[in-house]
Amino acid sequence: MNVFRLVGDLSHLLAIIILLLKIWKTRSCAGVSGKSQILFSLVFITRYLDLFTNFISVYNSVMKIIYLVTSLGTVYLMYFKFKATYDSNHDTFRIEFLVVPVGGLSFLVNHDFTPLEILWTFSIYLESVAILPQLFMISKTGEAETITSHYLFALGSYRALYIVNWVYRYYTEGFFDLIAIVAGCVQTILYCDFFYLYITKVLKGKQLKLPA
């Protein structure tokens, strides 16, 4: 555990909590992509199956359980409790175009051809593109609420911090995992356009609006 990894994990947790609080306080999930939230839940479910097979640390298990419960909670709020506020007309990304290729790739490129390892690989690849329905939705409506942009900034920062963590681990432990690194870089690159808008607009007190 190093500081980049820890701050990355906390940033990830902060993102999830920001989104949950936004939905809970406003009693609305307008502007949030339910499809991205379903994909993130699928990411956690397929990655954290090792909760039952492999104990690493109390921190590791507790965080896994928190991520699982909070992401499933978000999906519950969106598709059940506050379903009437869900903006499905603008959430039209076809997730099968992500899940099917990612599923195929995880069978072809993995560390070990075993069920748990393939599911772990699937979750890493899927996470890298799971935000696309949300970004697609923002590009369709042309704007995002400020609280939603804080959510996206915290979520994007998390994987960027993980990349720094992997560089650090390579130099201090000689450790690297190419699957995680490549997917993590793809994931972070997808946020670059958003990061630019966030820094130039949201941090200066303006709402995030795309040029018409």
Partner: peptide, 10 residues
Amino acid sequence: SFKAAIKDEL
């Protein structure tokens, strides 16, 4: 080891 290492991450 190589694979055990990544699994300590989230």
